[in-house]
Design a protein around this nucleic acid. Structure first.
Lengths: 352, 352
DNA sequence: CTGAAAGCGCTTACAG
DNA sequence: CTGAAAGCGCTTACAG
C-alpha cells in the first residue's frame, strides 16, 4: 500500500513519440488511419510507461452510451428465484449509469423455449454492445451466442454454463460439487444404512443443471462407500396438488426414507407436503434463498438450503461486461460462486 | 433499468442562479465567502434539480490526495488471520488509488496493548482524512476514537464492534449468533445427552469477542433444552506444547467428550493434538479460513469452520471511508457479515 | 463576497 | 495519415 507511483498520460506519450495526443488516442483505441511506423513507436512507449488509461477522464470526455442487453427468465409464480440476479444487475447498473452505461432487460418464460428465441432475436436487432444471459435452453442459447460471436458482441453466462462457447466468462455454481455438498449435509447424521430420495421438480425436460447436481450427489455416496439406496423421482407438474400426489406415491412405495434432497429451489413444495402429512422424521435439503424456503427453514421442516449467491451473479455478470467494454480489464473466464450453506441460525445474515 | 434521466450540472445551476460556477462550487462544498442570500438561492436550485455531482469530473479536477490510516493487528506466527483483511484493504486501495486515495497501514501487536497506543498516536499526528481500525483493545480503542471524533476524523470498525462510539460504521460478524450457529453444527448429530468442550485459546485476557461467542453458543443449548454438560477451558499460552498439555489434562478430567468448539482461529492447534493422540471420535469446530485449518478440514479432523469474510471486511471497511469522504454516500452504520459454514466439500469455492 | 480562466486526462469532430 | 482546438463537469488559484 501507499507506494508512490507516477501515472503517465497521453500527453507524455505524445511528447515522447513526437506526435499529437489525437494520434496517441487513435493507437490506444486501435482506430485506423495511423502509419505502421508511428503506431509501433507509440505502442512501444505505452508498454515502456505501463500506461494505464484514466477511466474517469475517458468516460467524462466520451458521450457515447454503452447499451447492454440482459436475457434472463422472468420471475414467475412458481419461483421468484430470478428476482435476485435481477436485483444484482440493477445494482450494477445504478453504479455504472453515470459512466454512460445502460442495461436493457429481456425476460423469457422458462416454460417456453420459443420465448427465449423471440427475445434473443430482439437483442440481435437491437445493436447492443454486450449481452448477459442465462443459457437455460441449451440449443437455443448456443445458436444465439454464435450469432453474437459472429457480430463480435461479447456475452457472459450466469446461473449455468455452456462449455466451449466464446463467452466472455461464466459466473455461477460448480453444480457437481454443489450436489456433493448436498449429499454430505444430508448424510451427516445418518448413521446406519441410508435410504434417501432425490427429487427434481421442473417442467423443462432437458435440465442440464439437474443432471450435474445429481451426479455430484451420487458421487459422494460412492466416494464414501455409503451403503443404502438412492431413490429418484421426476415431478414435471409443479403445482402443489401434483407434487403432493407424486410424493404420496413414492413415500408409499418406499418405506423408511430418512432424507430428501431437492435439486432446485422448489424444495418448499416438498416442505409443504411434509408439513401437511406430518412427516417431521424426514430431513430435507434443497436450494436457494427464497422467502418460502426460508419460512420452512425457520420452522424446521427444511434442514439446510444451499445457495450460490444469485444476486452476486447478476451483479458480477453485468460488471464483467462493463469491465471489458469500458475499462478494458481482463477477467477470469470461469468464476465459480461459493456453495453457501444456510441454516435456520445463520440465515438472517446471508448475503445473496 | 434503462430509464432516461437528464443529469444537470454546476453550469445549469449557475445559469439559473445567475452566478458563476465558482460560487456554485463554494456552496456545494460549504465553503465560506458566499452571502446567505445567494447561498439559499443556489441550495434551492440544487434541491429542485436533485443535483448529483459527477464524481469522475470532481476527482479528475481535484489534485487533492486523500490519506486513510489503517490500524490492524500484524500478521503473527500464531495466526495469519489478519492477512485476509489486509488483502481486502489492498484490493480496495488499488481500485481507488487512481481517484487520489491512498491507505497507510499501521500494525500493532495483539499481545501488546502499548503497541496499539503507539500506532494510534502516530496516526493522530499524521493528519489523516479517515481511519479504519480493529478495536481489539477496548479501552485503548475508545480513547483513540474519541480523539478522532474530536478532530472530526471519521473512523470505521472491522472484526469487532464498540457500541455507542461515533464510528462511521461497523463491518464484521454478529458474534453472538455466530456462536449460536456453532452450537447447532456441533450438536447436529449428537443424539443423546451431550458432553461438549469449549476452548478459548488466546493470550489477551479481556477478549470481548470470545465472551459474545460463548454466550451465543450456550444460548443454543438453553433454547433447545439440550441436556448435558458444557465444559470450558481457557488456554493462555498459545504454543503447541502448552495447548497439548492443557488438552490432555481436560480430556482426562472429563471422560466422554464428544465434541469441541474452539472460539477462534486457533482450532488447528486442537486438531493437531487430536491427530497426535488419535482421538478421531471427537467432532471439532472452529473459526476461520486459514491454511492450517483447511488442511485439517481436508483430512477430516475439523468438521466445520465458521468464517466471517475477513477479506470482505477489509475491503468494505476501506471503501466505506472512500464512499463517505469522496462520494458523499450515506452508508449503513452496522453491516453484519454472513456466518459462513465451511466444510471439506465446499471449501474450494469459498470466497473470503 | 464574486467571477474569469486555466486545467484535470481524456475524446471528438473538423481541417488539412 | 496527422494535428489543433473545443469540450466533458468539475476544482483551483488569482484578481477584484
Amino acid at each position: 500500500m501507499s507506494n508512490e507511483t507516477t501515472f503517465y498520460g497521453v500527453k507524455e506519450i505524445a511528447r515522447r513519440a513526437n506526435v499529437s495526443i489525437a494520434t496517441v488516442d487513435r493507437v490506444i483505441h486501435n482506430r485506423s488511419g495511423v502509419s505502421e511506423k508511428t503506431k509501433k513507436k507509440i505502442n512501444d512507449i505505452i508498454k515502456e510507461l505501463d500506461y494505464q488509461p484514466n477511466i474517469l477522464a475517458s468516460r467524462l470526455a466520451s458521450r457515447k452510451i454503452i447499451s447492454l442487453a440482459v436475457l434472463i427468465p422472468k420471475v414467475s409464480e412458481e419461483t421468484d428465484f430470478w428476482e435476485s440476479p435481477l436485483k444484482g444487475i440493477s445494482r450494477a447498473e445504478t453504479e455504472i449509469k453515470k459512466y454512460g452505461v445502460q442495461a436493457i432487460p429481456f425476460f423469457f418464460d422458462l416454460n417456453d423455449r420459443n420465448s427465449f428465441n423471440a427475445k434473443a432475436d430482439l437483442i440481435l436487432e437491437g445493436n447492443f454492445h454486450g449481452v448477459l444471459l442465462a443459457p437455460s435452453f441449451v440449443e437455443e442459447a448456443k445458436q444465439f451466442t454464435e450469432a453474437c460471436y459472429s457480430r463480435k458482441i461479447p456475452f457472459t453466462f450466469i446461473d449455468s454454463d455452456l462449455p466451449d462457447q466464446h463467452n466472455l466468462c461464466y459466473i455461477g455454481p460448480h453444480l457437481y460439487q454443489s450436489g456433493y455438498v448436498g449429499a454430505k449435509l444430508l448424510t451427516y447424521r445418518l448413521k446406519e444404512r441410508h435410504k434417501v430420495l432425490v427429487i427434481n421438480i421442473s417442467r423443462a425436460t432437458d435440465n442440464y443443471n439437474y443432471v450435474q447436481i445429481e451426479e455430484g450427489f451420487r458421487s459422494y455416496f460412492k466416494d464414501h462407500k455409503l451403503p443404502g439406496d438412492i431413490i429418484r423421482v421426476d415431478i414435471q407438474d409443479t403445482d402443489n396438488l401434483s407434487v403432493s400426489r407424486e410424493l404420496t406415491k413414492v413415500l408409499n412405495d418406499h418405506e423408511g426414507i430418512q432424507a430428501i434432497f431437492v435439486t432446485n429451489s422448489r424444495v418448499f413444495a416438498v416442505a409443504k407436503f411434509l408439513e401437511k402429512s406430518k412427516r417431521d422424521d424426514i430431513s430435507l435439503i434443497g436450494y436457494d434463498f427464497l422467502k418460502e424456503n426460508i419460512n420452512y427453514l425457520e420452522n424446521g421442516l427444511i434442514d439446510f438450503l444451499i445457495c450460490h449467491k444469485p444476486e452476486e451473479q447478476g451483479y458480477r455478470g453485468l460488471m464483467s461486461l462493463y469491465e471489458t467494454l469500458v475499462l478494458g480489464t481482463r477477467i477470469e473466464k470461469v468464476q465459480f460462486m461459493p456453495i453457501d450453506i444456510i441454516t435456520k441460525e445463520n440465515q438472517a445474515f446471508y448475503m445473496n
